[in-house]
Amino acid sequence: MRSRAALLIVDNGHLALIKRICDDETYYVFPGGGIEAGELPQAAAEREALEELGVKVEMGPQVFLTIGSGKEYYFLASITEGRFGSGSGEEYTDPERGRGSYKPVWVPVEMLTAISLYPEALAVAVLRQYTAGELQYNKWA
């Protein structure tokens, strides 16, 4: 697996996620995707925000890094312009991909451990840090 970059966008106690339905399974993932050759993780996260969510973002600090079959970088971000849910990436425009459906949604942060959110360990960490006041929207502004 190649490295990927993802976003944590928190607004009014809700976290932006992608609801996935694939092979009759419903689960959620953080918006983001693969880092292209020569692309910095932060630039990849900005690109993915536009492709998947339809928004431009102001990037905040990297708050998580997971290492498995590839590195996954997670950044705080805030929406600066665009319309949430208007993404036009290939996951929305190419029905031949056969990878199920993608839908941007806002989920209450306190519900993170009650849904199937991948990676699961990150759901617990996000909830813990949010409760401690460490994942505040526009914290860096």
Rank of each mutant, 00 (worst) to 15 (best):
R99E: 08
S69L: 13
G85L: 03
H14S: 13
Q136V: 10
V57E: 07
Y73N: 07
E96G: 14
N138F: 01
G54E: 03
I21D: 02
I9K: 13
Y73H: 13
A121G: 14
G87Y: 02
K56R: 10
E72H: 14
S116H: 12
Y118P: 01
D23Y: 12
A44M: 06
A49C: 09
E81T: 14
A43W: 02
K56Q: 04
M59I: 00
E120D: 06
I18A: 02
Y27L: 02
K139P: 04
Y130D: 00
Q136G: 08
N138S: 04
V57C: 08
R99L: 10
A45Y: 04
E48Y: 10
F84Q: 07
L50N: 02
C22D: 13
L112W: 09
E51H: 15
A49M: 10
M111Q: 15
T66Y: 12
Y137W: 09
L122T: 04
Y102L: 08
A44P: 07
D94C: 12
I115Y: 07
E25R: 14
E120Y: 11
F84H: 08
D11G: 02
A123C: 03
Y73T: 01
V124M: 12
A77V: 02
V107H: 10
G13K: 11
E46G: 12
Y137N: 08
S69M: 12
T80L: 05
V107K: 12
T80N: 07
V126C: 09
F30W: 10
V126E: 04
V10Y: 03
V126W: 07
E81K: 15
T26R: 14
V63K: 13
V63D: 02
K19Y: 01
E72M: 11
L7M: 04
L40H: 09
Y27Q: 07
A125N: 11
L122V: 01
L8M: 11
I18G: 03
N138A: 04
V57L: 05
G60D: 01
S116V: 08
Q129D: 13
L122P: 11
L135E: 01
E58V: 00
T93R: 14
G13L: 06
R4Y: 03
T26V: 08
E25K: 15
A45C: 07
Q129E: 14
L50K: 09
K103D: 04
